[in-house]
Design a protein around this nucleic acid. Structure first.
Length: 839
DNA sequence: AGCACGCCGACT
DNA sequence: GTCGGCGTGCTC
């Protein structure tokens, strides 16, 4: 356990202390003590950013975590180079939160810091070289070689050179020895130039010269003078169309962005002429990257059931910190949120609304923006770093008292949260997988709430079984919202039997007859269709029809995925890619076919089955850029797409009344993966997708294609009986020791050598068995994917008793064990990855 | 994690 | 002979 932080009073200036322990964004389980130079002492405060040298030439931005008077014994502390903040960037609640997260998720505080602070707030170090002013080149006693002379020549013309400049000048990569020699000869100085990376966005804008804009006659005269000059005229007309200055002259002040005035085909020269002739003028404006929307005038009226739920939530909040809001799709949870957010903001507290990444680009955000206007910040995963910094600073300055954001927005510098809402709380994407900290944002949000003495709402149409379990245990308040908005009826389910259709030869391009009929019905009635394919099923690959060859990744134990668009085979684990071979590399046959069913493939099948229909596809590939998602949604909303094929994403935010048929292409794929949560996930996914069907008066149709339609998950989904399925699952989890009855910790052992990996994993297992807490240790087993990026991996799973003492004790001892193992020469380069509460 | 240093093969 | 491959060790 790290106990970096003592009892210092936050923000208090620490002028009496000589040393500071600094949190640095590096994954090292240690704290770093630096000297406080006397000159900087008055500026030192806990939570402020500092610049320190770390290692030979690296400078890093760190956070002051602790200030004291104990000089380190084993080494000489380096001095803090600079203090960046007058006001701390990180507040004490955040530091507590970081410490909690590092301890709970078994990672280092530096890793938490790395995840928490946008890199725009860290500083880049760039070493620069300048000529030594005291150096006399003519009369130097040191001989210079050719390369050294080249550098000195360059410094006659430029006052400073970066390392990169030097590399270019000399045309070689290893410049360090040369620079070192120049420093030794006192010819140059190396200095670290530290820059704040954040830069505000500046836009070139165009407006009509104010005198003309204010004078109708003058403007008419301009039009007359432009007669015949169509290009210039059209630009002026476009301006007046977008900026109606006759209605509101003030609009001219801010003008229009040059980029939006100039459309494709417009010539730059026409605009230049207009500026030259004194019609337009151009000017620069610092703009916010985050767009603002006008606040909505009148608040929406809550329905009776919504009001009821609201009252219940408030009632629970009197004694409970967390409330689970279980509301079926379309029951209007958003309106309840809005009401609670508004009240919390009015009481002067801040609000955070967490959404899964895929839901963030949807209507809910624009809806909220209409209500809350410019006091609301949006924190996207697709935001650039500058935009993240803007949100961060917005929260810090108080400009944003309400933030809608993804997982990582729990790290924003809130100082007085009153309410955190986690919408779609069952979503797996709230758990961070890969780099540490491997945190579950929903659980962390509850902890953060606790630190702020705030309240938490978990909202879902299909709550995670953990959350629902907590509700049944009275740990959370539980509020149900059953009525669908406008009394839309629940959809009608149909199971389409793939095996039966295959036997009867009714299967066409992987579609059952029932599926085709239902789609055709919808198309005939000019209604829309959604086809869902689970992402885990998205793995089309290439196979040789003659010998069965499939492309394998050269550094991982997986098949390569076929990407039609790029004509490539790619590895989803390491990024390796190769061109699709024209003939089989194993037997030379040219009979290579694509196997598996990705969204791309389904789209193709559908285009053959329904040549008239207008198709759209929504998956990771088609929504890669920031607005791709919105574009597809808009097209679909405008009725320009009849059938939309997509992954998970289509279950979010589609809120259009014309969808009457939802097809689940491969229902089995949702069920079949080796994970204790498979059933729960299947239930959630099917219910969520089905919820997109028939939201208005028309009853929706849901078709599930499956090879074994008798599976009880399907049965329970169709009955819509969440509670019954929950009870069934809980019995299994209890008898087989799965969450929520135990806590899981997964430990992955990785190394390039198979034998060493196995040996290390076994050694770890042996040691863990001795930890004296109530637990079950499983494994180690070769991981499902035995090798990734040339690293073999073994996994151990530990099932811990639910008490928090057990967990804390286990984690402490585990860290100790790993430290010892790591110190064994044999296991020096073995990597261990701890995943607490894995998905 | 970076990033140095250090000791072995393939190139001007 | 040098360039540069990545194994190993350290960072206050």
């Amino acid at each position: 356990m790290q106990n970096l932080f003592g009892d210092e009073e936050y923000g208090k200036q620490e002028s009496g202390k000589n040393f500071a322990d600094i949190i640095l964004p590096v994954p090292i389980p240690r704290m770093f003590t630096y000297k406080i130079p006397i000159a900087l002492a008055p500026q030192i405060q806990i939570g402020a950013r500092v610049i320190v040298q770390f290692g030979r030439k690296k400078v890093l931005t760190g956070i002051i975590g602790k200030v004291h008077n104990k000089p380190p014994q084993a080494y000489d502390a380096k001095p803090i180079l600079e203090v960046l903040d007058d006001q701390p960037t990180v507040n004490p609640i955040q530091i507590r939160f970081w410490v909690w997260m590092a301890n709970y998720y078994c990672c280092h505080i530096g890793e938490v810091m790395h995840a928490a602070i946008p890199s725009g707030l860290r500083l880049s170090s760039e070493s620069k070289i300048q000529a030594n002013p005291n150096f006399d080149r003519e009369n130097s006693s040191y001989p210079m070689d050719a390369r050294e002379d080249m550098i000195l020549d360059a410094l006659e013309n430029q006052s400073e050179l970066s390392y990169e400049d030097c590399e270019k000048i000399l045309g070689i990569k290893t410049i360090h020895p040369i620079l070192k020699s120049l420093v030794a000869k006192e010819a140059v100085l190396i200095f670290e130039k530290v820059q704040e990376k954040y830069s505000p966005k500046v836009e070139t804008r165009i407006r009509i010269v104010p005198e003309i804009a204010a004078d109708k006659k003058a403007l008419e005269a301009v039009f007359e003078s432009l007669a015949g000059k169509t290009k210039q005229e059209s630009i002026l007309l476009k301006f007046l169309r977008d900026i109606p200055i006759f209605q509101n002259l003030k609009l001219n002040e801010k003008g229009i962005a040059k980029s939006s005035l100039m459309e494709e085909g417009d010539s730059e020269s026409s605009l230049k002429t207009l500026i030259k002739n004194g019609v337009f003028e151009s000017f620069k404006l610092v703009v916010n990257r985050i767009e603002e929307a006008e606040p909505e005038k009148e608040p929406a009226v809550l329905s009776e059931s919504q009001n009821q739920a609201l009252t219940e939530i408030k009632q629970h909040f009197k004694e409970k910190q967390t409330v689970l809001l279980h509301g079926v799709t379309g029951s209007g949870k958003t309106e309840i949120y809005i009401q609670l957010i508004r009240e919390t903001l009015e009481s002067g507290s801040q609000v955070l609304l967490l959404l899964p990444e895929i839901a963030l680009t949807t209507q809910i955000v624009s809806r909220l923006q209409q209500v809350f206007g410019s006091q609301m910040g949006v924190y996207h995963s697709k935001y650039s770093d500058n935009e993240r910094v803007e949100v961060w600073n917005g929260v810090l300055s108080g400009r944003f008292s309400f933030v809608v954001g993804v997982r990582s927005s729990i790290f924003l510098p809130f100082d007085s949260l009153g309410l955190i809402i986690v919408d779609e709380e069952h979503e797996a994407s709230f758990k961070q997988f890969d780099p540490a900290p491997r945190f579950q944002a929903r659980d962390s949000a509850i902890m953060l709430s606790y630190f702020h003495q705030a309240k938490t709402i978990l909202g879902s149409a299909t709550p995670s079984f953990e959350s629902y379990f907590n509700a049944t245990q009275d740990k959370y308040g539980y509020v149900q919202l059953t009525h669908r908005y406008g009394d839309a009826s629940l959809p009608e389910y149909h199971l389409a039997n793939l095996s039966a259709d295959r036997k009867k030869n009714l299967l066409k391009l992987d579609s059952t007859r029932l599926m085709r009929e239902k789609i055709q019905d919808a198309l005939d009635k000019n209604e829309q269709v959604l086809i869902f394919q689970n992402r885990r099923g998205y793995s089309p690959y290439i196979q040789c029809e003659d010998c069965g060859w499939t492309g394998q990744c050269i550094q991982c134990d997986v098949s390569l995925t076929y990407h039609q668009f790029a004509e490539e085979l790619r590895c989803h684990y390491c990024g390796y890619k190769e061109k699709v071979p024209s003939s089989c590399p194993a037997c030379g046959s040219t009979q290579l076919t694509t196997m598996g069913m990705g969204t791309e493939r389904i789209e193709e099948s559908l285009s053959l089955l329904f040549p008239e229909a207008r198709l759209g596809r929504m998956d990771l590939d088609t929504t890669r850029n920031k607005y791709g998602y919105q574009r597809i949604l808009d097209e679909f909303g405008a009725g320009q797409i009849d059938i939309l094929v997509g992954t998970q994403m289509i279950t979010k935010g589609l809120d259009f009344g014309r969808v009457t048929v939802v097809g689940i292409w491969d229902g089995d794929r949702i069920l079949n993966f080796p994970d204790f949560r498979a059933g729960e996930r299947a239930f959630q996914q099917i219910t969520q997708v089905a919820g997109r069907a028939g939201r208005r008066s028309e009853k929706g149709q849901v078709i599930i294609q499956s090879r074994n339609p008798d599976n009880e998950v399907f049965e329970k989904v169709i009955k819509g009986d969440y509670y019954e399925y929950f009870r069934h699952e809980m019995m299994e989890r209890k008898s087989f020791y799965y969450p929520p009855y135990v806590k899981l910790v997964k430990i992955t052992t990785r190394h390039t050598d198979f034998k060493i990996t196995e040996k290390a994993a076994l050694a770890l297992h042996r040691e863990m068995a001795h930890i004296p807490v109530k637990k079950i240790v499983l494994g180690p087993e070769k991981a499902l994917i035995g090798r990734i990026k040339n690293q073999y991996q073994f996994e151990s799973m530990i099932k811990l008793d639910r008490s928090s003492n057990t967990q804390a004790e286990f984690k402490t001892q585990l860290n100790q064990i790993l430290e010892n193992l790591q110190a064994t020469p044999e296991f020096r380069s073995v990597r261990w990855i701890i995943d607490v509460d894995p998905n």
